[in-house]
């Protein structure tokens, strides 16, 4: 799926770099950064409620290109700044991680 598909799903871009044409290959859902770091595939979307600057650090390590923050969690400005710097896109949705994972998985054909 392309990143632009996220907008079709109604997710809102929080960073200026929307990377709409980027081809996402996989997804991962989790809030424990060590777990994400150990198991998330590269070129993936991370579905999480962990709205924190450290999530960006972990994303860059793991090759995660998009972070989808669920439950409309507030996103701190230092997280957005870090994402802009590291070329990671952040999207936000009121949906739960379960719902968002199902939607994204369907688009990914998984």
């Amino acid at each position: 799926m392309k990143v632009s598909d996220l907008k079709e799903l109604g997710y809102k871009a929080e960073t200026t770099k929307e990377m709409e044409d980027f081809e996402l290959k996989a997804g991962y859902t989790g809030d424990l950064l060590s777990d994400v770091m150990a198991n998330a595939p590269s070129d993936s979307i991370l579905i999480t409620i962990q709205a924190h600057k450290n999530t960006i650090a972990v994303a860059t390590l793991a090759g995660i290109r998009v972070i989808l923050i669920c439950n409309n969690r507030a996103i701190p400005s230092d997280m957005i700044e870090a994402a802009e710097k590291e070329n990671v896109a952040i999207y936000k949705t009121p949906r739960t991680q379960f719902e968002a994972s199902a939607e994204v998985a369907a688009r990914l054909g998984k």
Binding site: D31, L32, L33, S34, D35, A38, H52, N54, T55
Partner: peptide, 15 residues
């Protein structure tokens, strides 16, 4: 709450 402390740090390093 910062997303750490899941008890996976050292096992991850070892892995």
């Amino acid at each position: 709450s910062q997303g750490f402390g899941a008890g996976m740090g050292l096992p991850n390093v070892k892995r």
